[in-house]
């Protein structure tokens, strides 16, 4: 695997925009709607002056011309804080490839490129971006910043993720615990973009959903990229011969012929995905199915264009 991100691949994202759908709290003026109604940037309406209130924002020109006392009200716009969250558990290093490339990536390489593209886009918009990686706990949680130095730092951290063929030890996943922890750590309303295969050791998927809900409850906008190799992980597209399947997180080995269980497996994979999609819909979380075979551009570009059309 190349140990460096190919910059030409992510430069195309320089010309895109991603605008927060809900209000976010930033620290400088920007593209996104702020929850605050202030007296600053975008002139939105006139309101009748109430006796006793400050005369500071009275529209005096209007008063001079028409004798009407109105106050100018402005819509505050702000910049965005975006937290990119990457699941770096062992299962994300599937499929096991000798030389994964952006065209034929494994799940982690796909996520790294998508995250780099997102960071590039945010840098162009002057939005602040931070990176969080987790497996069975939070392993990295950077500040959100919009500076060029910080962007370079994020790319370096992302490149580190690409360096291992697989994590040295088998890293299990605790999606629920990590996301709960993250939700407690982010204080201002932000955009949280998660790249995960949503595979973990817990029997109970409800825990994962409650963690996602926790993020939504803290008023963050959440986008979940469900990263997977659709051919191998959902369709069980293997040859008709016995295989040894190794659980990348627990090391458990199962020997079987995939063709024999294909139908049942596809059915249960479909049910799991549908449930995830429906519950995300219910919580107002954007669910994006990210098949690594389509390449990160094939997933991100249609998604951004779809979002842009909504405005």
């Amino acid at each position: 695997m190349d140990n460096q991100i190919q910059h030409t691949k992510i430069e195309v994202f320089n010309s895109l925009e991603l605008i927060a759908r809900q209000a976010v709290e930033g620290f400088v003026t920007g593209l996104h709607k702020s929850p605050f109604h202030g007296f600053s940037v975008e002139f939105a309406e006139h309101r009748q002056y109430n006796a006793g209130e400050s005369t500071r924002f009275v529209d005096w020109k209007l008063y001079g011309k028409t004798d009407k006392l109105y106050v100018k009200r402005f819509e505050e716009e702000t910049n965005l804080r975006c937290h990119i969250v990457i699941d770096r558990s062992s299962s994300m290093y599937f499929p096991v490839l000798n030389h994964p490339t952006p065209e034929h990536p494994n799940k982690i390489l796909f996520s790294v490129y998508a995250a780099a593209a997102l960071a590039t886009l945010m840098k162009k918009q002057r939005d602040a971006v931070g990176l969080t990686c987790f497996s069975d706990q939070l392993e990295l949680h950077t500040q959100v910043r919009s500076s060029m130095v910080h962007y370079q730092y994020l790319l370096t951290e992302l490149e580190k993720l690409m360096k291992f063929e697989r994590p040295e030890t088998d890293a299990a996943t605790d999606i629920a615990g990590s996301l709960h922890h993250l939700a407690e750590m982010i204080h201002q309303r932000s955009l949280v973009v998660i790249f995960s295969d949503m595979m973990d050791n817990s029997e109970n998927q409800d825990l994962n959903f409650s963690a996602l809900q926790h993020l939504k409850h803290a008023k963050h906008e959440v986008i979940l990229f469900h990263v997977k190799d659709k051919n191998l992980e959902e369709n069980l597209d293997y040859e008709n011969r016995p295989y040894r399947f190794v659980d990348m997180e627990s090391g458990e080995v199962v020997k079987l012929n995939p063709v024999e269980i294909r139908e049942n497996f596809q059915k249960s994979a479909f049910n799991a995905r549908t449930e995830l999609e429906q519950r995300c819909g219910r919580y107002g979380i954007d669910y994006v199915e990210a098949d690594v075979n389509q390449g990160f551009e094939g997933v991100l570009l249609p998604y951004f264009f779809k979002r842009q059309k909504l405005y």
Binding site: F43, A44, E45, H46, L62, K65, T66, K68, Y70
Partner: peptide, 8 residues
């Protein structure tokens, strides 16, 4: 609306 109001 009103004629003197910019946002209008």
């Amino acid at each position: 609306w009103a004629v003197w109001c910019g946002p209008c």
